[in-house]
Write a protein that binds this DNA or RNA. Structure first.
Length: 436
RNA sequence: GCGGCCAUAGCUCAGUUGGUUAGAGCACAAGAUUGUGAUUCUUGGGGUCGCGGGUUCGAAUCCCGUUGGCCGCCCCA
């Protein structure tokens, strides 16, 4: 039977699934638009180098990459960020600020499939460029929240964990660690939630056992869950960098509170995100039950545009993946049932009636109504059933009797009432039915 | 890349210690019903039992391999 299968991890969308996906995309687009973001798109296939430059050579193992017929090393895009950084970098000085962009696209990663993760998936990406302050983060976190709430999800369903790589950096610096050690500790922090004490193994292997007092301080910082606790812990340390950073924190949380979003936000220094390129605030959205992988993630990456060949350009962005999101909607019974029904279904008596009906059908369609009719001669009863099953509100009956009288019978499929109108008036009768 | 479980119709699943031509429900289609949507009844299409090999007189069933799926680990932009 199935000689050809879809490649592992790839998806097919039958009409109902496709309608559901479109619905999700439509709401994301609408939401982004209400926040003043504009949509862009870019190639699905990119030079392999674009990703190596950003993430290092090891990344290649997780890419769909190959050599094209011109000998170019290429890869299907695994994410949008490098691409959008290139777009921005190429026209940075010509773009009107603030730059608030979003896109929806499909991405590809050569990975083992798992719940909520496949080899192809869609992401909603939103980024703000050129804004160094936390105002950009406020706007993006607000957008992220709304992109989830638009489907009926609430603070009961998800929350956004907020952290700060800069703060970690300054804190560890103040504790006397050098940069390589700091990076290693951040790696430990990233793994700690899952691995617990095991997470320190990688640090120990590199630099030897972490001093017990230092380790305690790392753990204390990692467990911070509020701005107050943060301020209390940092106060005795002092220093300008930390103080300035706390000002940013107050701005960010104050802004989010003013937007009425504090119920979604949890300060959680345990989140650092594995990516080396994040340079400041980072955030991730999770389901409250903690059963699924991250719904969305993002953060500031002020160095990346420059690293990819553009000018120095502050940037912050996030992405929502469609797979985990769909699982959450499913869990909460919020998956919409997408019915694609015509407005009008035509019941047609035979060949002569069919020819007579075609003119009316095209006229009604041209006015924007969805019109369907059977492609073959079928018994009236069957046609009425088909009309009813189709979900149409109205049936137009083109039968021999009607044709002879020069009329069309209009049947309201809801209350089963019927009336006749002259053939010439069908269009206006349909319009009247639907506009009341 | 590693480990556990699984694979029979479009879907959900039966299928006896290995034994005739592999079944049911749902779904789909046709008819009963040649001008009115329900229900019901009848009928039908659809399977190389994931694929390949082995054991056997005989394999959906047992063994090996392989592919695919689910779950977990590594990773997770």
């Amino acid at each position: 039977m199935a000689t050809f299968q879809t490649l592992p991890g790839f998806r097919e969308f039958y009409p109902e699934d496709f309608a559901r996906r479109n619905h999700v995309f439509r709401l994301w687009r609408q939401t982004a638009s209400t926040y003043g973001f504009v949509e862009y798109d870019a190639p699905v296939l990119e030079p392999l180098e674009l990703y190596k430059a950003k993430s290092g050579d090891e990344i290649e193992g997780q890419l769909f990459s190959f050599t094209d017929k011109g000998g170019r090393e290429v890869a299907l895009r695994p994410e949008m960020t490098p691409t959008v950084c290139r777009l921005i970098g190429a026209k940075a000085s010509a773009l009107k600020r603030p730059i608030k962009w979003f896109s929806i696209g499909e991405f590809y990663r050569y990975e083992r499939m798992q719940k909520g993760r496949g080899r192809c998936f869609s992401q909603f990406n939103a980024d703000i460029f050129g804004e160094p302050g936390p105002e950009a983060e406020i706007e993006l976190i607000a957008l992220l929240t709304q992109c989830l709430c638009a489907f009926g999800l609430t603070e009961q369903d998800f929350y956004v964990r907020l952290s700060d790589r800069n703060l970690w950096f300054y804190y560890l610096e103040a504790l006397g660690l050098d940069e390589p050690r700091i990076r290693s500790v951040l790696g430990v922090v990233d793994k700690f939630e899952k691995a617990g004490d095991e997470a320190f193994k990688s640090y120990t292997e590199q630099f030897g056992e972490l001093d017990a007092a230092l380790k305690a301080k790392v753990l204390a910082f990692l467990q911070i869950k509020s701005l107050a606790a943060l301020e209390a812990l940092l106060a005795p340390i002092g220093g300008e960098k930390l103080a300035a950073r706390l000002v940013e924190w107050r701005k960010l949380l104050g802004g989010l509170k003013a937007m009425g979003l504090e119920r979604f936000i949890e300060v959680d220094l345990g989140v650092v995100r594995g990516l080396a390129y994040y340079t400041g605030f980072v955030f991730e959205a999770f389901d409250r039950k903690g059963e699924l992988r991250a719904l969305a993630g993002g953060g500031r990456y002020d160095d990346l545009v420059q690293k990819l060949g553009g000018p120095a350009f502050p940037a912050v962005g996030f992405a929502i993946g469609d797979m985990t999101f769909a699982l959450l909607l499913e869990q909460r019974g919020l998956t919409p049932t997408m019915v694609q029904s015509p407005d009008v279904y035509c019941v047609i008596g035979g060949e002569a009636e069919r020819i007579a009906a075609f003119g009316a059908i095209q006229t009604i369609r041209a006015s924007g109504y969805r019109v369907d009719y059977p492609m073959r001669d079928v018994a009236f009863g069957k046609q009425l059933k088909a009309a009813s099953d189709s979900g149409a509100k109205l049936a137009l009956i083109f039968g021999a009797d009607e044709l002879a009288k020069g009329v069309v019978k209009i049947r309201n499929l809801g209350d089963r009432t019927e009336s006749e109108v002259p053939s010439a008036d069908v269009m206006s009768a349909v319009r009247e039915f639907f506009t009341g």
